[in-house]
Each structure stands twice: as structure tokens, then as C-alpha cells.
Design a protein around this nucleic acid. Structure first.
Length: 311
DNA sequence: AACCCTACCAACCGCATCGCG
DNA sequence: GCGCGATGCGGTTGGTAGGGT
């Protein structure tokens, strides 16, 4: 096989770009644009293949590139988007203006590698909660025993044969709730506190306090992890929801969208700011009723809304 | 000072998809 | 429909800076 077809030319330079090469590429693209990358090196006077020019421009030279450390908001957005779409770096990058897929990928890999390598301590019974330790998305933790599910994280990290090998496969419908504006989100007025309920599920919410970066987004998934990873829904609230329509039988009936939303609100008040769950799991928790509402299609904007409302 | 280790990141590689003749 | 080149994307590699010993 060898090199890519566009790089078969003689004298193609490889490796790091020199400032002179950068200047040539910038000068050419700023005056001519980049209609056809394969023509760029010759016309710009570069001993590079078009593919290399494209990569250099997209990842480093284009004027709207944003460099420097990722902000906590960007970090949270990456976490949440990765929870939704997996290793689709270009998709994630499209929601972070000025950031490249390569940059996000590098950031994620170095960040996760660091965490995966750490042996989990038997004493720790809660997921990490501060800015530096909330590095593996909560989806990778078993809320029951607080252990890092490195196999699940690895599954998400190293997609080998399939690009869609994510924590949340594309066929898996998800829905997400922004609970930042819901009364009782802090545990007041609804009986048990958030802290109590979270502790039941293996989370120590009290450790979330006074952190430089308090995670406002938690996600739960049972894909590849077994159903025990999804915190059980609050039974009395679930029981209060009856299917409507002609049936009246939960296993056969449908839930009206409004009812679903009401029920959802009754559930999410117990959980932190933003909650992700699997559609099927919710169906199961509801007793097999068919949900007539479809999963939100614009989950990214919901994430953004969550962040903007919390900032 | 020399060496080693680790983290970071730019760049490359291979594959999938697209678009055109 | 098919072939081929161009492009896009994700995985991986390799160089290097910086910290520790």
C-alpha cells in the first residue's frame, strides 16, 4: 500500500512544518482559497501533499482557530457530547467553535489515558467529583460500587473495527433532561434530598460542593455495562403515572406526551442538573408501555442550554 | 549534567464516503 | 453502475518539552 495516493510524488516533504512553509500556505490560501487541495502544494510552492496542506490549514493555520487550554465549559461540553456520540471528534468539534477534531481527540486521549492507567482503589466508593478528577465521564462509573468501568471506557476509547462503537450506539435512542430550572432540584420540598437519593445510588453528592468545577452534567448508561448502572427510578413517582388512551393497561397502552413530561419532571428533580438515560430503560421502568414521544433530536442545544443556564 | 519518564500534540496513515466523468 | 480521484474522519505514531531522579 504505502503512502496515500496524493503523496506518491517524489520530493514530498514530511514531518513538522517550517515557518516558511506555513507562510507560503497562508499566503496562497488567503489569496486563492483552497478549492482543490491536491493543487494547493504545487501552486503554493510547497513540497507537500495536498492532504498534508489541508491538515495543516485546518488544524493549525486557519484564522479562526482557538488555541490554549480548554475552558471548564468546553470540557463539560466535550464530556457530554462524547457521552452522546462517542468518538465522533469532528461532530464534537463542530460544537466547539475554533477547536479542531484533532485537538479534542488529543485532549480526550491524554486525559482518559491518564485515568484508565490508574488502578481503582478498593476504598473509594464514590465517583470522582472535582475538576481534575472528573475526567472519565460518569457513564464509565458504576454508581453502585463507584468503580471505574475501564472496559466500558476502553470500549468507547478504542473503536477498532467500527466507528460507531460508542458508549451510546447510534441506534440507541436517548433522552436528556435539563433540570437546572426545576423546583426541588436541590432536594427541597420533595421529601428525600438529592444527596440522600444520590447516596442510595452510590454517589456522594456532598463531595460535589465547593469544587472549582462542579459537574453539572451526569449521564447514566447501561450499554455494555449491565442494567445495574442505571440508577433505579423512584418507584412512587413511576407508579403515579398511568397510561392513557383506550387501553388503560400499562403494558399495552401509550403514554401521552404531556404525561410523560410530567412524569419525567417528577423523576429528574431527584437527579443532578442534566440527566441522560436510555429510552429503552425508561420504557422498561415504566412497565413496557410504548412511549409515543420521540427522543429530542437537538440534544446538543439542550446541553448548551444547560450550560448557559448554569453560568 | 545526564538520563529517564511522561504528557502533550502535530502529523501521518488507512479507511470510508463523496462526487464526477 | 463503475472506476477513480478528492476529501473527510478517526486511530495511531513519533518528536519534543518538561519534570523528576
Amino acid at each position: 500500500m504505502g503512502h496515500h495516493s496524493c503523496c506518491n510524488q517524489q520530493k514530498v516533504k514530511r514531518g513538522l512544518w517550517s515557518p516558511e512553509e506555513d507562510a507560503k500556505l497562508i499566503r496562497y490560501i488567503s489569496t486563492h482559497g483552497y478549492g482543490c487541495w491536491s493543487e494547493v502544494p504545487e501552486k503554493a510552492g510547497l513540497q507537500r501533499c495536498g492532504k498534508s496542506c489541508r491538515l495543516r490549514w485546518i488544524n493549525y493555520l486557519r484564522p479562526d482557530i482557538r488555541r490554549g487550554r480548554f475552558s471548564p465549559e468546553e470540557e463539560k461540553l466535550i464530556i457530554s457530547l462524547h457521552g452522546m456520540v462517542g468518538n465522533r471528534w469532528a461532530h464534537i468539534a463542530s460544537h466547539l467553535p475554533g477547536r479542531t477534531d484533532n485537538e479534542i481527540k488529543n485532549y480526550w486521549n491524554s486525559w482518559i489515558k491518564k485515568k484508565i492507567g490508574k488502578p481503582s482503589t478498593p476504598q473509594s466508593t464514590s465517583p470522582p467529583n472535582n475538576a481534575t478528577e472528573l475526567s472519565v465521564p460518569p457513564s464509565y462509573y458504576n454508581p453502585v460500587d463507584g468503580q471505574l468501568d475501564s472496559s466500558a471506557a476502553q470500549t468507547s476509547m478504542s473503536s477498532t473495527s467500527s466507528r460507531q462503537e460508542n458508549v451510546f450506539p447510534p441506534h440507541c435512542p436517548l433522552f436528556m433532561f435539563d433540570t437546572t430550572g426545576i423546583a426541588g432540584n436541590n432536594g427541597g420540598g420533595t421529601g428525600r434530598s438529592v444527596e440522600e437519593l444520590l447516596r442510595d445510588h452510590g454517589w456522594d453528592a456532598s463531595q460535589n460542593q465547593d469544587q472549582a468545577l462542579q459537574p453539572s452534567l451526569f449521564s447514566y448508561a447501561s450499554v455494555n455495562m449491565g442494567s445495574s448502572y442505571l440508577p433505579p427510578l423512584v418507584d412512587d413517582a413511576a407508579a403515579s403515572l398511568e397510561p392513557t388512551g383506550d387501553g388503560g393497561d400499562r403494558s399495552g397502552g401509550c403514554f401521552e406526551k404531556q404525561e410523560l413530561n410530567e412524569w419525567v419532571e417528577s423523576q429528574v428533580q431527584y437527579y443532578p442538573s442534566c440527566l441522560l438515560m436510555q429510552w429503552e430503560d425508561v420504557q422498561e421502568q415504566l412497565g413496557g408501555g410504548e412511549l409515543i414521544s420521540t427522543a429530542p433530536t437537538d440534544m446538543e442545544s439542550m446541553v448548551n442550554a444547560s450550560f448557559s443556564s448554569s453560568s
